[in-house]
Design a binder for these strands. Sequence first.
DNA 1: GCCAACGTTGGC
DNA 2: GCCAACGTTGGC
Length: 156
Amino acid sequence: MRYWLMKSEPDEVSIDDALAAPAATVAWTGVRNYQARNFMRDGMSIGDGVLFYHSSCAEPGVAGIAEVASTAYPDPTQFLPESPYHDPASRPEQPRWLLVDVKASAKTRLISLPELRACPALADMVILRKGNRLSVTPVTPTEWQAVLELAANPAG
DNA sequence: GCCAACGTTGGC
DNA sequence: GCCAACGTTGGC
């Protein structure tokens, strides 16, 4: 059992969108970074914990809890010419990009970046490191527990 | 919109 | 293999 943080732009798929989807499950399309892909391919197992993070929005931060709901499989959007995630260099017989299904478990209060940064247990969290841009990152059990505790507490 | 940080590309 | 140029990410 491992833990992860996965970024989503809420304009595209928010935690509410995920919870409203059939079986509260969404295919995590659009990852186009090899390191992030490799985490999904080589690191993830069904049932792993996921921090659902809202990025590129007015209030970036952890917005919900989810779990990995499939092993990695080819991201169909890489083959769709009309998709913003289209990759003309990827061949169907050897797909370059993968995704996993993510099942939303619960919405949390929004735990903002400043609040995450203020938590001592999260000092080394990958997402908080300077210059970090990875959309899929590992989370340690200690960090996972610390975020759950923040989520359970009142804001501030 | 700005810009720092990072990944990718491509010429050499 | 080096590295400059370019594109993207993402907080502010």
